[in-house]
Simulated assay, not measured.
Amino acid sequence: MKPVAEHCLRNQAPIAEALHPYLEAGGRWLELGSGTGQHGVFIAGREPQVQWQLSDVAEAHAGLLAWQSDAGLPNLPPPWVLDVTRDEPPPRDFDGVFTANTLHFVGGPVVDSLLCCAAGALVESGWFAAYGPFNREGQYTSAGNAALDGWLRGRDPDSGLRDEAEVIGWAADHHLAFVTAQDMPANNRLLIFTKKG
């Protein structure tokens, strides 16, 4: 049975639309922390010119495989088991890397490992896109985001909403240069970076 995340059903169309300008040229994209796999299936179905590679830790693999197999899309190969804290980055031949709702769910060392993996997988001038809730100038952007942050820190004090400026600086340490940020529904943002050096 395929796992279903209701928030994916709500936000997959806006995410796909926001990513389209970076996907329309085609190429290979890697999704880190694919979760259920719903985003990847939805995007691959809308962007047949892009090969979309799902990946996540071993515990998520059965769900990813169920979504990928059921979709039967030629541009959606079988998912990879990939733990950014232990595994080497994939070969540096991806035109883009995407991650959704991951940076606030994990602790700082995992965020650093994810950024390192993203940078290591990208070709020169490749795109890195990170979607999720972020604080701005140290402030919550909604009461819902504040409540989410409290819940996250209650389960793991090292997790929680990151400030946009912090993420931009962190990414720069891995040669990911900030390009732009786009407002998304439900007080989320899409941060776009490009690989330099």
Rank of each mutant, 00 (worst) to 15 (best):
V41T: 03
F42L: 08
F42S: 10
I43C: 03
G45W: 04
G45R: 04
G45N: 08
Q49A: 14
V50A: 08
V50N: 01
Q53Y: 07
Q53V: 14
Q53P: 07
Q53F: 10
Q53L: 11
L54E: 00
E59C: 04
E59K: 13
A60M: 15
A60L: 13
A60Q: 11
A62S: 15
A62N: 14
G63E: 07
G63A: 12
L64D: 09
L64N: 11
D70L: 13
G72P: 08
L73C: 07
P74S: 14
P74H: 10
N75Y: 08
L76Y: 01
L76D: 00
P77H: 05
P78W: 01
P78V: 06
D83M: 03
D83C: 04
V84I: 10
V84R: 03
P89Q: 07
P89D: 04
P89V: 04
P90R: 10
P90M: 13
P91A: 11
P91I: 00
R92D: 08
R92K: 11
F94W: 06
F94Q: 03
D95G: 15
D95L: 12
V97R: 01
F98R: 06
F98K: 03
T99P: 09
N101F: 10
L103W: 06
V106A: 00
V106C: 12
V106F: 10
G107L: 06
G108N: 11
P109G: 02
P109L: 01
V110P: 00
V111P: 00
D112F: 00
D112A: 09
S113G: 07
L114W: 00
L114D: 00
A118N: 14
A119Y: 02
L122M: 14
E124P: 12
G126D: 03
W127V: 15
W127M: 10
F128Y: 04
A129S: 13
G132K: 01
P133M: 09
P133Q: 11
F134Y: 15
N135H: 15
N135R: 15
N135A: 15
G138P: 05
Q139L: 13
Q139Y: 12
S142L: 01
A143Y: 02
A143H: 09
G144E: 10
N145G: 03
A147G: 11
A147R: 13
A147V: 08
L148K: 12
L148M: 15
L152S: 05
R153W: 06
G154C: 08
G154H: 07
P157W: 01
P157R: 04
S159D: 01
S159N: 02
G160T: 05
G160V: 07
G160I: 06
L161Q: 00
